[in-house]
Nucleic acid binder design. Structure first.
Length: 891
RNA sequence: GGGCCGGUCGUCUAGCGGUUAGGACGUCGCGCUUACAACGCGGAGAUCGGCGGUUCGAAUCCGCCCCGGCCCA
């Protein structure tokens, strides 16, 4: 009795069963100190901000494919999962969540905030875990890490202290990107620029000495005039040459400020005069630094973006900058200070996290000198120590990494790693230490004040590849799994994360943290928009898994999808995945129905009868070619190509062709030897293909593999198949070309002649060559059965076919379909075919007639063209009914 | 303003110097042929964004232009 499996594939039950099976067997637990080949991936830890999106699923699927394949290849595989506390982003998410209950996060005491965030984290973490398990990702849960766990905290502090000690990290007063809503500094990368409408005001700064007129200054931020310390013009600007050195009065407050010259002024903007507000603009700040005589610049905005300070008139203090802008504009208008107003579009900096307008603000923060850390990272990519895939992203990497600004790492929020610094209240010493100090090492004073800020979340993330392996301890894991094999991620965090990890790795772990970086494409929805949490157009992965199973989702994420660019994911894509799973399942069922009792697991290659049928030899050769291509695609980081190759092979070569051709033999209609061969071949091909497919769709393949005769306990750790297990057999591939041409032609003629489905007309056939004749003759059974004709008879020449038969001429032969009952209409298809062939022939002949072509094209190209012309003209002659030329070739 | 990517059947894409330009989805026709209608068989459908150039030969290389997207300033 053949083994039975359910006629319908129930992914939910099957997938859960294998997930717990693999887990209980501990298949994904990496050995600490393996000998031999090893393969390591550190999973980019998802943020607790949310749960896994489809984009995560895509990246994780790619990682799983790579990891599972390596496991089958016998490598010690470590795939390390984790979770990122995502400091500011999480605080913002929780803040938004609280706002729905009318609670302002800022109003809560620190402990309550941490408690709220802690609860939030627990919930997301549980969901992310559930998602990862349900998708069948083969991560090593025993090595799960969190960016805020004890070891991460210590490692982060360690890095801070070392960088501080080495002078690569400093505290200083700089213009930073200030987010007034979140009341914190953010890094350059967390700022997004957008074109927005504004109004450009031309303000007249009157001369201090009361002489008529003044300097006209253009600005979109009139509320900042209270922070003005000067008006600057270009030193070579003839319009303003006489103004330099004079003084003007700031409108509304009449405070006198000097007119200075600075080469940074854009003469074409406005009237070529710029109001200088060093505390609230980066360019102005630099100008201010070049003109120390201007003194310390006044700050006129507080941390919430409200006007404040002595320089601001009472009436505007405490007023938000946006409101203040309108009030000031009105007042300026009333004072007659506005010369002109015009609509203006300009680029506005907004906070990626809060979307509030970023205010450049002078403040004291901690910075990392990235420029000093970058060279080894650049070098690694340049020398190929780190390879980026697709490689065109190297350009983008270089461009960014070669023009680095210092990285502002301090944040004025609650959620994050505390900055490991204390200040001595006695002597002012700055103490950076991993463990909090008891006393000042300099003056032994005991009054120490901790730094109130926390670290940018990326200051932990950039250490991830080695911190997760135990750094700064010298663990066996660090020794064996660092550098990791590949980093798979989205290119949106190339600067935030990938580049910085390379810098940190080189500095602290002795080299770059991975050999390869693979950037996945990004998913788009049916309207072409990028999927994002923000747009809400990303389906919940667990919903999709519930509907179609994880395997279907995983496969759909890779097929059909662009090789290395963004691709769409729609309802139809998912359906495609599900359909493929059904196909695999049914192929498995079919095979099980044809296995003899006690069949053995397929060996290295099926033991075939020497004269075994063409289809057997052909499908083995096709399997080998597929296995080779799949290997090449995966080695080249083209998982979507590998998925498509397997899809094509299993569905169209195995299911549509081989199984249909071998059905007679499998049933036993062609004798015992043929049956034994076909069974052995089908079992071999399917078993080996299940192995190739396992990394992509692990559950269904594990399920079917267990139902088949097999060796070993788990497909998940069975050997990855070797292409050489099957012969290449180019002869069989060429012969199948001839045979399939015949089958296709007969099917074609039937459809063209409108033959009713039940009717089996007779076919006549005139092969082009003895070789074709031999092949077709040997398998006339297949021509008959798959071509759906009653019988095939061989004729010696075209005239041997009856009047009115439907006719087709192919490179391998002439085919006639004879209908006993009805007569066939004129073969319109043949005429069209003739016309098409004639066009190609004309084109080819024109090429051959061209002296330049004959003289310069490589000999084989000319020979091919000649061969093509011969074949085409021969075929056309045969269509025209001229006596067939000698079967061996043309004139 | 700078940079990158893309523009190929209705749609999504493969091809990246010599191909009868390949596939998937959709569409049309015929079929419930005992693994699978979540399927099979067959058909129609693209002069490869535009203009120039290089070349014996260009969807493929170069230049300019137009359109869409992304990144940086």
């Amino acid at each position: 009795m053949p083994k039975e499996i359910p006629s319908r594939f129930d992914p939910g039950e099957v997938e859960r069963r294998w997930q717990s099976g693999w887990a209980e067997a501990g298949l994904f637990t990496a050995p600490s100190a393996p000998a031999g080949p090893r393969f390591a991936i550190v999973l980019p830890p998802p943020n607790v901000t949310g749960v896994l999106t489809l984009g995560h699923m895509l990246g994780d699927t790619v990682m799983d494919v790579l990891a599972r394949r390596q496991r089958m290849k016998g490598a010690a595989v470590l795939w390390l999962p984790g979770l990122d506390h995502a400091g500011l982003a999480t605080q913002v998410a929780v803040r938004r969540h609280l706002a729905k209950e009318n609670v302002r996060l800022e109003d809560l005491p620190r402990e309550r905030i941490l408690e709220q965030i802690g609860r939030w984290k627990e919930a997301r973490e549980a969901t992310i875990r559930a998602q990862t398990v349900a998708a069948g990702f083969s991560v090593d849960w025993t090595r799960y890490r969190y960016t805020m766990d004890e070891r991460s905290v210590r490692a982060t502090r360690e890095v801070f202290v070392r960088l501080f000690r080495d002078g690569l990290l400093y505290r200083g007063e700089r213009i930073v990107n200030w987010d007034p809503r979140l009341r914190t500094a953010v890094s350059n990368l967390e700022v997004v620029h957008r074109e927005e409408a504004a109004e450009l005001l031309y303000l007249c700064y009157r001369w201090e000495d009361g002489s008529p007129g003044g300097l006209v200054v253009a600005t979109v931020r009139p509320e900042t005039i209270f922070g003005d310390v000067a008006v600057a013009v270009h030193p070579d600007d003839p319009r303003h040459a006489g103004a330099i050195g004079r003084k003007v009065r700031v409108p509304l407050v009449d405070r006198p400020v000097p007119v200075i010259a600075d080469a940074a002024i854009d003469r074409d903007f406005g009237n070529g005069a710029l109001k200088v507000t060093p505390a609230h603009d980066l360019l102005d700040h630099e100008i201010g630094r070049r003109h120390p005589e201007l003194g310390a610049p006044p700050t006129i905005l507080d941390e919430a973006g409200r006007l404040s300070g002595e320089n601001v008139p009472e009436a505007y203090r405490g007023v938000d900058r946006a409101v203040a802008r309108e009030l000031v504009t009105t007042a300026l208008e009333a004072a007659g200070a506005i010369v002109r107003r015009e609509p203006y579009r300009h680029s506005v900096a907004r906070s990626e996290r809060s979307d509030d307008v970023i205010e450049p603000r002078l403040s004291t923060q901690w910075f990392v000198r990235l420029g000093a850390l970058a060279p080894p990272a650049v070098e690694a990519v340049r020398t190929g120590a780190v390879r980026i895939h697709p490689d065109r992203w190297e350009l983008t990497f270089f461009r960014w990494v070669e023009s680095l600004e210092d990285w502002c790492i301090s944040r004025q929020v609650v959620w994050g790693h505390a900055i490991p610094v204390h200040y001595c209240e006695t002597c002012g010493e700055v103490i950076a230490s991993v463990d909090p100090p008891d006393a000042c090492p300099k003056c032994e004073g005991r009054r120490l004040r901790p730094d109130p800020d926390v670290l940018d979340t990326w200051f932990t993330s950039w250490l991830w590849p080695f911190v997760t392996l135990g750094w700064p301890e010298r663990t066996p894991e660090l020794a064996r799994y660092y550098p990791t094999s590949v980093l798979v991620t989205g290119r949106d965090i190339m600067f935030f994360w990938v580049a910085r990890m390379m810098m940190a790795g080189a500095r602290f772990a002795g080299g770059p943290p991975f050999d390869h970086v693979y950037f996945t494409g990004m998913l788009r929805d049916e309207t072409g928009r990028k999927m994002s949490k923000h747009l809400g157009n990303s389906p919940e992965p667990l919903d999709l898994i519930r509907r179609t199973g994880a395997d279907a989702l995983r496969f759909a994420l890779l097929h059909p999808n662009p090789v290395d660019q963004d691709g769409p994911f729609t309802e139809a894509t998912l359906e495609g995945g599900r359909n493929f799973l059904t196909k695999i399942w049914n192929l498995g069922r079919f095979l099980l129905g044809h296995l003899p009792d006690g069949a053995a697991a397929p060996g290295r290659a099926p033991d075939l009868d020497p004269g075994s049928a063409l289809e057997n030899r052909w499908i083995l050769a096709r399997w080998r070619a597929t296995a080779e291509s799949v290997d090449a695609a995966l080695d080249g980081f083209e998982p979507t190509v590998a998925a498509s190759l397997l899809y094509q092979f299993l569905w169209h070569d195995v299911a549509d062709r081989y199984v249909e051709m071998a059905k007679d033999a499998l049933r036993g209609d062609r004798g015992e030897i043929a049956q034994r061969d076909a069974r052995a071949v089908l079992l071999f091909v399917l078993e080996r293909t299940l192995r190739l497919l396992h990394p992509f769709v692990p559950h269904v393949t594990e399920e079917l593999w267990h139902a088949l005769p097999h060796e070993g306990e788990w497909l998940a750790v069975s050997p990855w198949p070797l292409p050489a297990d099957a012969p290449a057999d180019p002869e069989a591939v060429a012969a199948m070309e001839v045979l399939w041409d015949g089958i296709r032609t007969l099917r074609n003629l039937r459809a063209e002649a409108d033959v009713p489905a039940a009717e089996l007309p007779e076919a006549r056939l005139l092969p082009t060559s003895p070789e074709s004749e031999r092949i077709l003759l040997a398998r006339s059974d297949l021509l008959t059965r798959l071509g759906r004709v009653s019988r095939v008879t061989w004729i010696a020449e075209s005239s041997g076919a009856p009047e009115g038969a439907a006719r087709s001429v192919t490179p391998h032969g002439e085919y006639f379909l004879v209908r006993p009952a009805a007569s066939l209409g004129p073969a319109g298809g043949l005429a069209r075919e003739r016309e098409k062939l004639q066009t190609i022939l004309d084109r080819t002949r024109a090429r051959l007639a061209d002296e330049g072509f004959r003289a310069r094209a490589p000999a084989h190209v000319v020979a091919e063209a000649e061969e093509k012309a011969r074949e085409l003209s021969d075929r056309i002659r045969r269509i025209d009914g001229a006596p067939a030329s000698a079967p061996s070739g043309g004139p």
